[in-house]
Each structure stands twice: as structure tokens, then as C-alpha cells.
Write a protein that binds this DNA or RNA. Structure first.
Lengths: 356, 356
DNA sequence: TTGAAAGCGTTACCAA
DNA sequence: TTGGTAACGCTTTCAA
């Protein structure tokens, strides 16, 4: 490694004698290129490090004279001093870090917006949000990597098991919260069960008189997390289900549309509005009338559904606001001993429009 | 604060005598509820903390006997020991943290995917990606908050000035990289100038014989970051530009469509494909023929554009891959003294389809 | 009102 | 091959 970062000892505190006689620093000021510390500020202001800390955190337990305060502030400003978060939290024994998993695939505007909102809400509550990609690691190893940051709270990704949860809790996380279809032992759970979405779609189509329902399954990697439960939800309704694998591209949609008509399917739940739009277009290109020949329903209630002709029926998904969830996280952090809480946070309801 | 986290001194190292006679710990094992440290592991394995460190990081400079290694590993496993990142980086003098700004508003699927990809690529290079929301703070204050984390690299948000850059660099950031339309003094710059997008759209429409061009300006807060440069790009082409404020909802689109026809505009650049779809639908509902009465071009080349009838002309935007950019960040981190580099990373080209 | 010093969990140097 | 110990930057008693 090139010798770029020169470490120069800052201040030689009174020490058990007999060791390390490194040369004293250049008396005044900070070495060029080194990051200033509170000791540098103290030296420049002519006070002790303790005083610097008191002033900069304006600790109420201690009164510091106005002139001293000013000197400290000026010194800090002059040096461009910024406290060191790691040192501070090491001393404090805890952090304000909240860990959130990064979805591995583009996950749709709805869920993206949800995560984004949550992130901002947490920031506003003064948490440091760390997006964590587990890359290749399996559940337990990922948990260990996360635990290194000593987060105060973790929003665990689907797939994290009780072992991972345990590791995180033992590393000091005050709240571990899973977002997924099923609760996990030892953690709070925000149940987001996409079967509800499939059920709403299935019930709607059944009410319209359909018995056999095609269900679009995105071929895209990673979407199974949502697609499989949605499929299962349709199956729950008792309808006869036909899977329709579909890649998000026009050619495959044309193929799927042909296939669908051959099989005489009269109704399709298209995974979401975007796949619905794709399939609907392909169906129309084959000359099919919607909804008379084929009824199509999407999900997520995106704007684009309202712009299609016929207007796309869909399933609206109600997610809690980021603000609300951030508040919950905060509450759980403040009461770490609370019993694991399980709460259903995903609501789904059909929005009938012209395509069914 | 409730007395949940009991701090119990771990090991009393040889000390200058005469102070702090706190009771020794319960001889063996870790206090329940406390997070185990390397000292705990050392005690359980019957070795020194140094040895634990050597084994766990398998330092090549030192040979440790196989039995000792095993004892240490077993002790670590038994205690569920996980190293403390803050302590480690405090000691090391640097972190592997890369700071990325969180966009304040939903910013479109294209840019979202780009940021997501970049994030994953950085994770793969073993960086810890921290998404940072600056909340209310202005540029300099935000920079100070970020600097507290001592990131090794920062992807600075638009709006961060040279002062903020300076703060970050002085706090030890080896690379500060701006993503935006203009370079900022002291930082590397990945120029993403959306004027290119407007220019491509404008040129295309001019080539189709239009002289007056309507430009959709989203009313949505925060999109100005992209919308204003795109507008400026159209102005660059010398066309006569008419601004069309438009909220992302059907009613306002109907109003805008009517307004547009009254003013006799024959061509519109609709900010992006989604606004284009919205406006196109509204225009068609007024009975306008596209492209004969009004030509419409979008941007971002989303799938939905190909599904519209007529198929939507658009501007394809070429962004570097996340992998590529992560590699660049890594390179800059390794060579912190490198001269600030300015690189144009946004390519824009019109994709003519049936709507113009 | 201020200062000295301990200690948070690591790692790396130097001795043994 | 292993262990003692200083040091990273900060906060916070305890003493003066």
C-alpha cells in the first residue's frame, strides 16, 4: 500500500513511562493531510479534550464560560473538525444504524416507493439507514456480516431464518423485523402476504363467472418472491389455474397470447399491471376482444392501467405509510423487551374497470 | 432510559494502580445480554486477545498452532462472537463505507435501476453502501453529517458545492464523485447532462419539420432536476418552446391536451415515456390523430412505449453499467491523489417510432 | 469551570 | 509461536 496516510501521534498523554518515545508533533496545528480530531481542537483552543466535548455537544450538566465556548467553536471551525461517528458509538455502546436489505432485482414502482418512503421517514427520526446487499452469502453468514455494524434495528430480508435473527439480536439489535409472507421465530413480523392479491383477483374473476383462470408467471429471475404467492392466492379461490410463463418482452407476449387463445382461456390474472399491459396488447393484436373474449386483470393499480383501452381492472395494494412504519420501528427500538409482534400490513382489493 | 444494557467490565488489564476498583467479572463466560467481545473469546479459549485476532483474521505474518486455532474458533462459535466494525475501523484508520444519496422523490424506473445496480456492484467489491437522506440540512451541514461516517468514497448529490466537497475530502474521503449536469471543483464528475435528452428530442422533431415544440414540465415536486435540463436541451436546438406544466393524473392531462390543441401545437416532447403515455391518451380522447395532428415523443425508452398505438417515439438514454461505475469508484479510491476526472456518462439518442 | 484519565473493541508492534 | 500493550477518537465520571 502506498504511504499516503501518514499517522502522526497527536498528543502524548501522561503515560506509564518506559515505552514508545515517538517524536512530538509540530507543536502547533494539525499535520497536513491528517483528519483533525477533538484533541487538535483542544490544543488550538488551549483547553482540554473534555471541554471540547462539553462545548460541542453542549452538555447541560456542565457550565462552560462563554469565552471558552467561543474559542472552542472557532477552533473547531478553523480546523474543519467533524466528530468521528465510529469512535462516538464505540464509546456510547450503541449506534443509530437501521439496516435495510437491498432488493436484488428491480421490484416494481410500488414497492420501490414504499422502501424509499420508509428510508426517508427513518432518516427523519435521526436513524442512519444502511442499505445492505448480502451478495452471495447465505442467511447465517449474511446475518453475521450485518451484525458487525451493530445496528440498533434490522429490517430482515425474506429468507432470513431464526438462526440469523438470533445472531442479530445477540449482537445488540434492539429490534429485528421481518417483511414477508410468514413470521419468523424471535422477530417482529410485518406480514406482507401476496396471496391476498391473488385471492382478490381470483374472487373478482370468479364473480364474473370464470372458472378457469390463466395466471401469468414472470420468467424474470427474482420475481418469484411475489409471483408464487400471488399464484397460490388464485389457487386458494378454488378456480382451475393455468400457469402462463411470460418474459417481459413483446415476442414472448405474442407467443403467450396465441397459446392462451388456443387453450380457450377466458380470464387472466397477469401478475401485475405492467405484464397485464404487455399481454393485453398482444391479445388485441391477435384480434381478441377484451373483456369479451378474454378478461384481463392486473395488480398494483398503476396509473398506466387507467390509460389503457379498455381500462385495466386491477388489484389495489394498500401498504402502510413509511412514516407509520418508521414510527413502529422507533417504538420497538425503545422497548426492546417487547414480545414479538405480528401484524398484517398488506391489504388487497379488486378495482373493477373495463377489462374484466 | 431503562436499565437494559448492563455494561460489565470484561478484563482488568495491568493498569497504573490507584484507580477504578470495579468488581471482577463472574470469572467465566459473558454476562447474559451483553455482546461478546474478542476478550471474551480469548478468555474462553485461554489465550490472549492478540492471538484471537490473529486466528480470526488468519494473519499470514504469524503462525499459530493448529490446536490453538481450533480452540479459538470453537470459543468464538460458542459465544456467537461477531467483530465490531466500528472498533475495527477506528483502529484501522479508515472504513469501506461508500455514501450514496437517496433520491428524495420516486425518480423513474431507469434511474432507480441504475442506482440499484451500482449499489450491488459496490457491495460485490466489498464496500458498505450507506444510503443517506440529508433530510432538511443544507449542503454544508449535510456534508458534515456525512463526514461523520468517514466514508472512503462519496457519490455526492446534485447541489453539493465545493465547500461540501472540501469538508468531505478533509474528513478523509479518498474519492468524491458528483453525479450531475456540471462538474464541481475538487471532485471527480460523472456528467449526466439531461440537456442531451432534450436536444435529441428537439433535433428529431425539427427534422420532422416542426418549429414550435411543446415541452411537458411535470408539476411533481423534485422532478425539476431532470425536467429543467431536458427543457433547456430543447431550447438549445433553436426551436420555439412552449412549456406545458402537467401533473401526473388524468384530469390535468385532459386540460393540458385541450390547451395544447387550442394553441395549435403540432409537436410535444413529453419529459418521459410515462408522461407521454398520459398525454397521448388525453390527446386521443380529444379526437386528435397522432402523429398527424400532434407528434409526441417521450424519453427513457420504457417497454410501455412499444405497446402504445401508435408506438411511441422516444429518447433512449445510455447509462454506464453499475459494474463499470463501481470499478471506477474503486480505482479512484485506490488512487486518491489523482487529478479530478470529468467524464460524460450519459448518452441520448432518438428512437423514431410511429408517434412522430 | 476545567482537567486528568479510564475505557469502548480492535489490531499491530515488540518481547519473550 | 504466543502474549503484553499502546493506540485509534471519543465521552464521562471524578477531582481539583
Amino acid at each position: 500500500m502506498p504511504g499516503v496516510m501518514v499517522q502522526i501521534p497527536k498528543q502524548q498523554p501522561a503515560q506509564p513511562p518506559g515505552t514508545s518515545g515517538a517524536a512530538r508533533p509540530e507543536a502547533a496545528g494539525v499535520a497536513r493531510g491528517a483528519v483533525p480530531t477533538s484533541a487538535d481542537v483542544a490544543r488550538l483552543a488551549g483547553v482540554s479534550r473534555a471541554t471540547v466535548s462539553y462545548v460541542l455537544n453542549n452538555t447541560s450538566a456542565v457550565r462552560i464560560s462563554e469565552p471558552t465556548r467561543r474559542r472552542v467553536h472557532e477552533a473547531a471551525k478553523e480546523l474543519g473538525y467533524v466528530p468521528h461517528a465510529a469512535a462516538r458509538s464505540l464509546r456510547a455502546g450503541h449506534t443509530r444504524i437501521v439496516l435495510m436489505p437491498t432488493p436484488e432485482v428491480p421490484v416494481g414502482p410500488l414497492y420501490s416507493a414504499f422502501l424509499n418512503e420508509l428510508q426517508w421517514a427513518l432518516s427523519r427520526l435521526d436513524y442512519t439507514v444502511v442499505q445492505y446487499g448480502s451478495v452471495g452469502l447465505g442467511g447465517e453468514q449474511a446475518a453475521r456480516a450485518w451484525a458487525e455494524l451493530r445496528p440498533v434495528a434490522v429490517l430482515a430480508p425474506v429468507g432470513m431464518g431464526p438462526d440469523g435473527i438470533g445472531i442479530l439480536r445477540r449482537s445488540g439489535a434492539k429490534a429485528v423485523i421481518t417483511l414477508g409472507p410468514d413470521p419468523v421465530a424471535g422477530a417482529h413480523a410485518l406480514i406482507m402476504d401476496h396471496r391476498e392479491v391473488g385471492r382478490a383477483a381470483g374472487d373478482h374473476l370468479i364473480a364474473r363467472g370464470h372458472r378457469r383462470i390463466g395466471v401469468v408467471m414472470p420468467r424474470e429471475e427474482g420475481l418469484g418472491t411475489f409471483a408464487l404467492p400471488r399464484l397460490a392466492g388464485v389457487e386458494d379461490t378454488g378456480a382451475e389455474v393455468v400457469r402462463l410463463p411470460l418474459a417481459y418482452e413483446e415476442e414472448d407476449a405474442a407467443r403467450a397470447a396465441g397459446h392462451l387463445r388456443e387453450r380457450g382461456l377466458g380470464a387472466v390474472f397477469a401478475y401485475n399491471d405492467e405484464y397485464a399491459m404487455l399481454l393485453m396488447r398482444a391479445l388485441q393484436d391477435t384480434g381478441a376482444a377484451i373483456p369479451d373474449d378474454v378478461a384481463v386483470i392486473g395488480a398494483d393499480d398503476l396509473m398506466l392501467g387507467r390509460l389503457l383501452r379498455p381500462r385495466l381492472s386491477t388489484v389495489r395494494i394498500d401498504l402502510p405509510s413509511g412514516e407509520e412504519l418508521a414510527g413502529l420501528v422507533d417504538r420497538l427500538v425503545r422497548d426492546p423487551a417487547a414480545e414479538p409482534e405480528v401484524r398484517n400490513v398488506l391489504g388487497a382489493s379488486a378495482v373493477p374497470r373495463a377489462s374484466t
